[in-house]
């Protein structure tokens, strides 16, 4: 995890206790009001409807009272300084937080008007609909084919081998990888380059035809060329999928996303059209972040 995060939180606590001593140029606690987000956090055709979401790890609160809509077929980018809770919030959307024992999520999170955290809700089905791509490429130590076929196989999406072949080919095509690997589908995936691995992971995610794809810094382990390929891919995918992407690169957010959400110390500070966020941010914290004063 992130080793500097606890330090950030404890500093914040210090500020709360003693608001009159602005040692650094960071008077955020006095500016942010919990649960209040400037800009346009809500949308009409919401895929995700998230209200008053709070997440805590044990006693530390990682997400503080956030409300947000994610519209159908939009690409929304989460940006913000390290440790501000972007990944935590993203992982709520397909309940990847479940495997962390101390993690508690409250509030109302709905996917297509159905509660995600409902006790009767099936997490397997949820994750089949909301796929995820991780920061570090994590192909399984199997062949390329088996990696992509893994999801369809466990969900029983293909009845015949030819169906499966088709799904694999389509997914690899969509991920822009087909040309590179079509002759070595039986080679192990771990032997590929980092960029190829990440695109394979994307292919693996879209092989189960999810409705939403969550991406947590998908390009942070890649070189610029591989990054460009993945970004291209995102642009193509945005036609048929809803995409939520966490990124540290503001250029990337500007290039791929329709809307951008700025997180700060667990708060959702500002959400707006991407070009608006980057050209005329409404909140001063957003402005300091994108102008590079901290982060």
């Amino acid at each position: 995890m992130n080793t500097i995060n606890p330090a950030v939180t404890s500093e914040a606590d210090q500020y709360q206790a003693e608001p009159v001593a602005p040692v650094r140029e960071q008077p955020e606690e006095t500016i942010i009001e919990e649960g209040k987000t400037v800009g346009r956090p809500f949308a009409d055709n919401a895929k995700f409807k998230l209200r008053d979401v709070n997440v805590s790890y044990g006693d530390t609160r990682a997400i503080k009272n956030i409300s947000l809509d994610v519209a159908k077929n939009e690409v929304i980018a989460f940006i913000g300084p390290s440790g501000c809770g972007k990944s935590t919030f993203l992982r709520c959307l397909n309940r990847m937080n479940d495997s962390i024992e101390i993690c508690k999520v409250t509030g109302s999170l709905q996917l297509d008007d159905q509660d995600i955290y409902d006790r009767r809700r099936d997490v397997v089905e949820l994750r089949a609909r909301v796929g995820m791509v991780f920061q570090k490429p994590n192909p399984f130590p199997k062949s390329i084919y088996d990696n992509v076929a893994y999801g369809p196989r466990i969900h029983g999406l293909a009845n015949r081998k030819s169906d499966l072949d088709e799904i694999v080919e389509n997914s690899l095509r969509k991920a822009g990888l087909w040309g590179e690997v079509k002759d070595r589908l039986d080679a192990t995936a771990t032997g590929m380059s980092g960029g190829q691995q990440q695109r394979l992971c994307i292919a693996r995610a879209i092989a189960v035809s999810p409705e939403v794809i969550l991406m947590d810094e998908p390009c942070s382990a890649l070189d610029p060329i591989a990054t460009a390929r993945v970004e291209e891919l995102m642009a193509e995918m945005s036609e048929s999928y809803t995409i939520v992407i966490v990124t540290h690169s503001m250029q990337q957010a500007a290039r791929v996303s329709n809307r951008t959400a700025y997180f700060h110390l667990g708060h959702l500070v500002e959400v707006n059209e991407t070009n608006k966020v980057f050209t005329s941010p409404e909140h001063e914290l957003t402005e300091s972040y994108i102008t590079g004063r901290f982060g």
């Binding site: 099936d122 089949a128 609909r129 969900h155 029983g156 189960v208 999810p210 409705e211």
Partner: peptide
């Protein structure tokens, strides 16, 4: 979109067996 819908249906149907 229809593709996704029908797939979700397949997934739902397989669930019982998988949970067993």
């Amino acid at each position: 979109m229809t593709d996704q819908r029908s797939q979700a249906e397949i997934v739902r149907q397989s669930l019982k067996r998988r949970y067993r």
